[in-house]
Design a protein around this nucleic acid. Structure first.
Lengths: 353, 353
DNA sequence: TTGTATGCGTTATCAA
DNA sequence: TTGATAACGCATACAA
């Protein structure tokens, strides 16, 4: 490790500390500190003078030093499956846009939807980085295994996005999955479809968003006087080898399915690929809807009919809720539910018969 | 601001400091510090004892405190246009996978390819967050306007990914754009195409990756005895309104173009969309290749023929180079050039005539 | 091999 | 309204 006994000359590029500013301004460091962070009792006169001087000198408070005394790192975590997923990326950008305004940085942690990695990420965030809080799209976990149930984490500020654990009283920004599920299913029903399969990613089997969307699907079916057929609930491993394509399509054929509701866009797109491989025309013989309106949904062909719920906005809101709570703690629980709306594209068509 | 004069009882969840460990171990904090970071002179005996104890107590060194004395934040920046872009997302995941192993966190900063935002991001990273270094996909900037030319930044450790400024002697992880450009162009030539347009995103007009790929395109043409036609260099604004579709296609028709080389996948996909809107069959009447092999390239239909150059690996390498430099400074300049390889899919076909 | 003492740059307390 | 000063938690030079 180098000697680092910094000489004045070395102070060239922004090794400028509050002390330097104080010296230059002819006041104490305490005054500079107060002046710069607005709040406290300083004369408007000196405040302006110091602010100008600090700006001119290019002074920026050292976060580490400030953290040490403040007990705040001005860092937030974003814990999600994979940033490669367009949904998470949008949430990130939304959250970051707000956080940056407020002087917070966001540290991304990818979990691959693995609750063990999620645990590691949260421990690192809490104990090491000492992030002030986190935004999380929780990973699916066996009952009671999710780290969010642990008191140490539960007492730490975080907000769930899209997925959550209903029995946890934490802040959350959700999508109205029930309504979205109904919206899409009704759309299919209106087109004359009666045998509609609900296809979900097996990895997310127990997650709240799958449950909610399925509930919506069933509710819409019920409205139309159709009894949900358990045979039509199909788990699909999105990353499974292509060989299952014919199997799945044969299965759908056998069950008389004319439309598929994919619980997320990715799943719907996968079904679309499998259909193409099997030579089944979409939407001619099979209508498909997704959920999310991610970038891929308008790129595939035919473009996917889906539901949009503004992930970027959700990220922004999540950051706002989190930072609000950090800056003025309250016991009020925040819950925001986004209204999904139909994005009618070309992957759906009238059922023919 | 709360009182925070922490009482012993409050020490419940991991407000555990090095002092607590020292106390419990019956040694001094100095010894604990040394024991935990391995390096220094401590008996293997006590080292193990302390390590075990620390682990049991759930002690994690406070990053802020450590930073203050170390002058290192253990934070890295990743400065890129948008994380919503699958390329950047992959770079991030690669970089993070390595950084996390080494105990570094990565702070993402999105620039939207705007050099002013890039400047803000870098200043925040350097002066405020005091990140130890950064990985950057530099934004296009008017001559001399890029912040990377400023001495203050130039003397700070960073590594460029994919794009760079050739006259800057910084570390970089690049793709062999020249070779990639040749690879794809040759592929098109082999299929019998002679009028091949090079379509690039106008936003990136002057960027090194565009230049390199175009050079490769021209070199391959030259090999085949074809003189590059300036008429076939087409700038396209990817986010432009759809109305240009017929215009662009008419232009291609008029110029006798039978194949398009999109400088990135996104551009190629956009051309594909425009072709579809104009009722032009791909690859029947128009062959299209992209560059990057991003997730969208295999999702569109027809799936895109493109070149892969392992962005995730590039991110990982960039992090490694950066951290290496941080841990043992050297003057040797690191440059890694990834070899692109052809991913032959269905958006290209024999030229008919 | 271990312990003592000092300082990192900032905020916060309290006295002036 | 301002200034002196004591933390904050850790790493290191140096003494033991």
């Amino acid at each position: 490790m180098p000697k680092r006994r910094s000489t004045p000359e070395e102070t060239s590029l922004s090794e400028i500390t509050i002390k330097d500013v104080a010296l230059a301004a002819g006041v104490s460091v305490a005054t500079v500190s107060k002046a710069l962070r607005g709040a406290d009792r300083v004369s408007g006169e000196t405040r302006k003078r110091i602010a100008a001087l600090a700006a001119r000198m290019g002074f920026r408070a050292n976060n580490a030093a400030r953290s040490l005394v403040t007990k705040r790192s001005y860092l937030l975590g974003l814990v999600t499956a994979s940033i490669t997923n367009n949904f998470s990326a949008q949430v990130y950008e939304g959250a970051d846009s707000y956080a940056a305004e407020k002087g917070y940085g966001i540290l991304l942690c990818v979990t691959e939807d693995n609750y063990r990695k999620e645990r590691q990420a949260l421990e690192r965030l809490r104990l090491e980085v000492r992030a002030d809080g986190a935004i999380a799209v929780p990973a699916p976990a066996p009952a009671g295994k999710s780290i969010f149930y642990e008191p140490s984490v539960a007492s730490w500020p975080y907000v769930f996005v899209t997925r959550h654990f209903p029995d946890l009283t934490s802040d959350r920004v959700l999508c109205d999955d029930l309504k979205g599920g109904m919206l899409l299913t009704r759309h299919l029903l209106d087109l004359g479809h009666r045998r509609i399969a609900f296809v979900y990613d097996s990895l997310h089997a127990g997650c709240s968003h799958v449950l909610g969307r399925r509930q919506g699907y069933q509710a819409a079916l019920a409205e139309a006087g159709i009894k949900p057929d358990p045979e039509l609930m199909i788990a699909l491993d999105v990353d499974s080898p292509a060989e299952t394509s014919h199997a799945l399509m044969a299965q759908l054929e056998a069950k008389g399915v004319t439309a598929v509701f994919g619980h997320v866009d990715r799943t719907a797109v996968r079904v679309m690929q499998l259909a193409r491989e099997a030579g089944i025309d979409v939407p001619g013989r099979l209508s498909i809807v997704g959920f999310g309106n991610l970038n891929i949904s308008e790129l595939v062909s035919p473009p996917l009919t889906t539901a949009d719920y503004a992930p970027r906005e959700m990220g922004r809101l999540a950051a706002r809720i989190l930072i609000d709570r950090l800056e003025r703690p309250s016991t009020a629980r925040h819950q925001i539910v986004m209204e999904p709306h139909l994005v009618d594209r070309a992957s759906t068509a009238k059922a023919r018969k």
